[in-house]
């Protein structure tokens, strides 16, 4: 529906009636469905114990309810699992924005020792041994010359599935399209606080995706006992980006607790309250951060924070939540 609107400079950021950014599209239903099977199939991990869906669970907004996700053999992952709703519109992946495509992004968890622990050779060998998958890949890629399943086909299929996860028909969206009864008075009040220049939420969590897809240093604390996370400084080597993370979309945010890159806040109230506790209040003295200029002291009242939280709940739409397969082609136990 947002295709009805213009977008300032074609960036897909703006106000209520602004067009979306460029999106990935054009996958066949067979590719999407194959991607769905792969997504839920633990055969993608080195020991067949976990699937993509273990950390990106459909019922938890495609996150996992954990502060720090767990990989194979319960190994701790570095950060909190982000939601993958609306990935089709996103151009930066991982909290530290080190990847620009889904195809590139998925190789992180697939081959990371602490996550799915696999490697390309083993992944290909495993899938090529399974007749079910051979047939499904042939259907999804009818043009293929080689009968062998290739890595690119795996990546394409998973990308196709992820790009089908669109969430743009929430009560908020209905309001945005002009049906003003879709939100109640408190939710509208929350929306106005959200977009006001006092709270400034929408300056970075900009509609329609509720992210401006930039990096920002906001200075959230690490949970007790965890070291300071340098964020995008690590992949870029740029000290001015120390502690910066990708601004995440807030679509379906009510489903994806706990919040922030480290899962330090377990509810939306606390995550929102963080922004009114003072610029850099949680940054250790020993760490020099260039905190984003929008982080200030808006002095939001408890009432205002509660209204913002009410509004955030109106961004929930799961009408395109996929069905979890009854069984997966590998025949492994489907455990989420």
């Amino acid at each position: 529906m947002y295709q009805m609107y213009n977008s300032s400079n074609d960036k897909g950021v703006g106000g209520l009636q602004t067009g979306l950014p460029q999106n990935r599209d054009g996958f066949s239903p067979q590719q999407i469905d194959l991607g769905r099977y792969l997504f839920f199939d633990p055969v993608l991990s080195i020991d067949g114990s976990i699937s993509c869906a273990s950390c990106h669970q459909p019922d938890k907004g495609f996150s996992d309810g954990l502060a720090i996700s767990k990989g194979v053999k319960g190994k701790p992952v570095h950060r909190s699992a982000p939601s993958i709703w609306n990935s089709a519109f996103i151009d930066k992946f991982f909290w530290d924005a080190k990847s620009n495509t889904l195809e590139d992004q998925m190789q992180g968890p697939l081959y990371s020792e602490n996550e799915m622990g696999n490697n390309p050779i083993n992944l290909l060998q495993t899938l090529n041994k399974l007749e079910n998958y051979q047939a499904l890949f042939l259907e999804a890629f009818p043009e293929k010359e080689d009968e062998e399943i290739s890595l690119n086909e795996i990546y394409t299929a998973l990308t196709a599935f992820e790009c089908s996860l669109i969430s743009l028909n929430s009560p908020y969206d209905q309001y945005a399209h002009g049906y003003h009864d879709a939100l109640n008075e408190q939710e509208i009040e929350g929306m106005n606080i959200f977009r006001s220049f006092v709270a400034r939420c929408s300056e970075c969590h900009t509609p329609p995706l509720f992210t401006n897809q930039q990096l920002a240093v906001i200075g959230t604390p690490e949970p007790k006992g965890r070291p300071f996370d340098k964020g995008a400084e690590v992949p870029t080597g740029d000290k001015t980006l120390r502690g910066s993370f990708k601004v995440p979309s807030l679509r379906n945010i009510a489903l994806t607790a706990p919040y922030e890159h480290s899962g330090v806040f377990d509810n939306l109230y606390d995550a929102t309250e963080f922004y009114t506790k003072g610029r850099g209040h949680a940054v250790p003295d020993s760490i020099d951060l260039i905190v984003h200029w929008h982080i200030w002291e808006p002095q939001l009242s408890v009432y205002e924070i509660e209204r913002i939280v009410d509004f955030l709940h109106t961004l929930t739409d799961e009408s395109f939540k996929p069905q979890i397969p009854q069984a997966v082609p590998s025949g492994l136990n489907l455990e989420i």
Binding site: G15, T18, S196, F197, V198, S202
Partner: peptide
């Protein structure tokens, strides 16, 4: 406290 007049994508 915030703005006199603020427009977003109008």
């Amino acid at each position: 406290k915030g703005n006199g007049i603020m427009g977003q994508a109008g």
